[in-house]
């Protein structure tokens, strides 16, 4: 049997908001360690990697490993039926055809159950090696979301340049150009507002704004976002999910032909 309970269903609601732009179907791998998902968008340009550790759940039981293929729009519809203060429990039996979502109101006077059919999916797994990145930037996630939104008005692509001075975002198009520079912040008491650059070598890479604007749907999950970059490898954009895990997005760069 598989059973995972989260007192804060709002976490799962936010996770679905963070993946539904990119994925229509995904296989959730459930094991003793927790719930993992790795899936690419249809164009195979970006990848979502989600990890929810079992010890982050309020109750977690997984008697045998399960791979559950789910429709992301359907799951998203079901989670929209939960109030943010509800507790959510995911439940499935061994060799399941369906998964059940149970939402309980705080005083348990309302219990809602939604059963969703599972789907068989061809699994494509990318082997992503441990990588030491040339630049790792931590910055406020809302600031990153705003920059992606603002610069995407100027062009389809955004160049991110990281140096010891800080990080620069730029876009160019028919209307003109846009540049936003963020300097490293001095030691600040408010870590959520900090911009921190760890740099071994300067990096300059160009990415599709459309995908970046999908990644920033994860902004409500965490006050800070971490961007990891090296020359000629995909960007990693990472958001911590409270004490339970993280979501990482990988994005292949654009290159001059």
């Amino acid at each position: 049997m598989f059973e995972a309970r989260l007192v804060q269903s709002v976490i799962l609601k936010k996770v679905l908001e963070a993946i539904k732009d990119l994925l229509t179907e995904a296989t959730f791998e459930c094991s003793d360690c927790g719930i993992q998902l790795q899936a690419m968008d249809n164009a195979h340009v970006s990848l979502v990697s989600l990890n929810l550790r079992s010890d982050g759940f309020d109750k977690y039981r997984c008697d045998r490993n399960l791979s559950m293929g789910m429709s992301v729009p359907c799951m998203s519809k079901i989670l929209r039926c939960a109030s943010s203060e509800d507790t959510v429990t995911l439940r499935a039996w061994d060799n399941p055809d369906t998964i059940v979502f149970v939402f309980e109101s705080p005083n348990r006077d309302k219990i809602s159950e939604y059963e969703m059919k599972l789907i068989n999916l061809d699994q494509e797994h990318l082997g992503i090696p441990e990588t030491l990145y040339s630049c790792v930037v931590k910055m406020p996630s809302q600031e990153f979301a705003r920059i992606c939104r603002d610069l995407s008005q100027f062009g389809d692509a955004m160049t991110i340049a990281c140096s010891k001075e800080g990080i620069k975002f730029s876009a160019a198009g028919d209307y003109g150009t846009a540049n936003v520079k963020l300097a490293q912040t001095a030691e600040t008491e408010n870590q959520e507002e900090a911009v921190v650059v760890e740099m071994k070598e300067p990096v300059k890479l160009t990415f599709s704004c459309r995908y970046l604007n999908s990644f920033v749907k994860a902004t409500p999950l965490c006050a800070q976002v971490q961007l990891s970059m090296s020359a000629e490898v995909p960007l990693v954009c990472e958001y911590q999910i409270g004490e339970i895990g993280h979501i990482r997005y990988y994005l292949a760069p654009k290159i001059d032909d």
Partner: peptide, 14 residues
């Protein structure tokens, strides 16, 4: 001209 690469250019698919 700018080209969009795919992730399979970097990582091995299994």
């Amino acid at each position: 001209e700018v080209a969009q690469l795919r992730l399979s250019s970097y990582y091995i698919m299994s």
